[in-house]
Amino acid sequence: MSKPKVFIDGQEGTTGLQIHERLAGREDIELLVIAPDKRKDLTERKKLINAADLVFLCLPDAAAVEAVGLIENSRTRVIDASTAHRTAPGWVYGFPELYKKPEEVIGTARFVANPGCHATGFLASAAPLVSMRILPRDYPLTCCSLTGYSGGGKKMIAQYESKEKGEELCSPRVYGTTLKHKHLPEMQKISGLDNPPVFTPVVDDYYKGMATTIYIHNRYLVGQPTAKELSLILMAYYAGQPLVSVAPYMEEPAYLAANALAGTDKLELTVSGHEGQSIITARFDNLGKGASGAAVQNMNLMLGFEETRGLAL
């Protein structure tokens, strides 16, 4: 049997480079490569897209939509890393741990939308609690998400790594202050909430790693579980998952470093608080489970490989 042909459209971007790094040494696929001087050549891209069994789109939204329109067959499958299709009809949302049988949902899908990084951290905490009817759909959630600067792409990386960077880049910077961040539509839809959360992202002066936290008043939850009980509930939900886990509940306060899982493709949840209030923090690599690692995980499911093949555990 021939090896599946895989093409990364937009390989020169941060996400594309990270996907290529995970796939370059694999012998179970054939990686199609576009010549550097042809990367913006529509004819050449179209040729490779239609030659591939699976295409990763690591492109701006408009370009990702254009790329899907270049497909002229009923065979080529797509994983889109942009925001363009995450809530679009006909596309499967690529967060395997939110499905009972991801091999039957993502594994059989033709079009898969890779989650956003902030959305990944939010959904890992909120979506299971909504699906289990513990967190009411009308609950007014708030969320804060701290990320390393690599999530901003090449331009932001250059700014932070410049020798002439200003003082403002040496401290955490809150952004998305209009409360209309581009990840909000998927955060609301996939979680099942009636309203989007009040969400503020923060970028800081370190390369990669994320800490995404939601804030809960326990008395408004069904059954009024304590923080410790929420930890056990989520631990049971993710039991047996190779890439998402829940840390043991800690009675004493602790510092949670946002870059603790940098360099891996895993995500870990930590539940903290007491009887009346809880916070749930998802820590992961914004370039791993928050982007490229998740894309390769989805590819493995779609092509029938072991889910974690080629990933950093």
Results as ranks from 00 to 15, higher is better:
125 S>P: 04
18 Q>W: 02
300 N>C: 05
224 Q>M: 14
110 R>N: 07
264 T>K: 14
148 G>V: 13
12 E>W: 06
240 G>D: 10
109 A>H: 11
145 S>P: 01
218 N>I: 05
223 G>L: 13
296 V>Y: 00
115 P>A: 05
191 S>I: 07
19 I>P: 08
206 Y>M: 10
4 P>L: 13
36 P>A: 13
146 L>H: 13
25 G>Y: 02
255 Y>R: 12
304 G>M: 14
61 D>Q: 12
118 H>L: 08
81 A>G: 02
60 P>W: 04
287 L>M: 12
227 A>D: 07
98 L>H: 11
128 P>A: 04
258 A>C: 13
233 I>F: 02
273 G>P: 12
234 L>D: 01
304 G>H: 04
285 D>W: 01
142 T>C: 10
6 V>Q: 09
109 A>V: 01
272 S>C: 10
45 R>Q: 11
175 Y>E: 01
108 T>Q: 11
261 L>K: 15
231 S>K: 12
145 S>C: 06
30 E>N: 03
93 Y>N: 02
229 E>W: 04
137 R>Q: 12
98 L>K: 09
228 K>G: 04
249 Y>N: 06
285 D>Q: 02
213 T>P: 09
279 I>Q: 15
72 E>K: 15
267 L>C: 14
294 A>D: 07
144 C>K: 14
152 G>I: 00
292 S>H: 01
224 Q>G: 04
116 G>I: 05
68 V>A: 08
208 K>H: 03
44 E>C: 13
84 A>V: 09
55 V>T: 11
151 G>I: 12
174 V>W: 01
240 G>T: 10
216 I>R: 11
